[in-house]
Design a binder for these strands. Structure first.
Lengths: 222, 222
DNA sequence: ATTGACGTACGTACAGCGTACGTGACACGC
DNA sequence: GCGTGTCACGTACGCTGTACGTACGTCAAT
């Protein structure tokens, strides 16, 4: 029996196996041993199917939020959980990111994150801002990592900027060794730490403003 | 006379006017009053054309780098220059971001940015890391701002989470007002400032390690 | 002046795409 | 038996990217 879930799953598998460009309704139907138009009994359009793929991937984010842990650690854990899924479905992640989906599929992560930020002492306005900034960083990082690299972040070792003129780009050519190699884990953790500590500074500033004296509350660990 | 530049320009205009989905070789040819296959005398394939579009947009980034200014201000200016182009060619920006281009078109911004970071006192390894983190944030922000929707819909999470169950998502539903509205300029500047200051802290830490005593050098202004 | 090579624009053709529409098989409450 | 739905299917239409063959201009060498 054909159903929406089987179709979405087949789409995700096909995307991961052969890339997003290989996805067509005919291809998915063939994958399921089914006529093309049968898919349309369960999915209104190809665009809707891709939205469903995005939701499916998002819903796989596994959170083990521990409210008793320090909020900075909770932030780290949530960011890494997101990243882990992205690495598990790298090509589908591009679909997720390049698609504006208007559903509640990605709402659970948002709920968890906002709760964490509220626990950190931020008011509603600040919490939302922090979250937006954080998502921007994580999504941008994943874009670089996953391979469909955004502008000027030469990740592919070697060939990308193989022939740079030292006269035109002295600094780039001097830093070529660092530009050519990229330890994704390390890069991600570096930015993550920078952001978390920056957030902690803001949290402390809030606390100071609130109590009138400096406290350690809300500070970053490490 | 047909040439590569006219084709790329027509493609950019078409993308901005009707969205990336509307782009087809036939459409562009019609726009130029030309046969479809004539395009292939100047562009090897549609994919290559889209790469050229990405390069074209990137090359339009106008930098007025002032090496005498404080490095934090130079970072701010460069980030805003990138963002300005993205807002001028919003739909093409999605093409830029979702496409891995291996040319030197985007290398000038990298050169400027790395030079700025070196001036801030970072060594090569740190400068590259800072740049990667910064690009991740900027690209992620632009993805949120520009969206992918065909229509200019500034509200991101507005109608999407219109019907959220307060019992399931208490924090989200409490912060709905803040989630529904989004001043993109303000959000971007907020994250930008947070990042710049975090970078300044690192720069100071470097300076302290170097001199053995705290200094104000490299600190963030404001 | 003639010839040949070459670059450019064009038209045709093909395989593949998303999907609107109609058809037939089966299960159900009356 | 009989509407009434649901579901899989096949056909068909208007698109897509692009391979291929053709025709015409210009220029170099003969």
């Amino acid at each position: 029996m054909l159903n929406r879930n089987r179709i979405v799953t087949a789409a995700v598998e096909l995307i991961e196996r052969e890339g997003a460009d290989a996805v067509s309704m005919r291809r998915i139907a063939a994958e399921l041993g089914v006529g093309v138009m049968s898919l349309y009994n369960h999915v209104p359009s190809k665009a809707a199917l891709l939205d469903a793929v995005a939701e499916d991937v998002l819903s796989r984010i596994g959170f083990t939020d521990d409210p008793s842990a320090h909020w900075t650690d909770r932030v780290r854990i949530q960011a890494r959980a997101f990243r882990r899924i992205a690495h598990h479905y790298p090509r589908s992640t591009m679909v997720v990111v390049s698609r504006q989906l208007g559903s509640t599929a990605g709402l659970l992560p948002v709920e968890r994150a906002l709760a964490t930020l509220r626990d950190a002492g931020f008011d509603g306005r600040e919490a939302v801002r922090m979250l937006r900034m954080f998502i921007a960083y994580v999504v941008g990082s994943l874009l670089r990592e996953v391979g469909v690299t955004p502008t000027f972040a030469p990740v592919r070792a070697g060939a990308a900027i193989a022939d740079v003129d030292p006269a035109l780009f002295p600094v780039v050519s001097e830093l070529r060794p660092h530009l050519d190699s990229c330890d994704h884990d390390e890069e991600f953790e570096f930015g993550l730490e920078l952001l978390v500590q920056a957030m902690a500074v803001r949290a402390d500033a809030r606390a100071d403003r609130g109590t009138g004296e400096p406290t350690g509350r809300g500070g970053a660990r490490r």
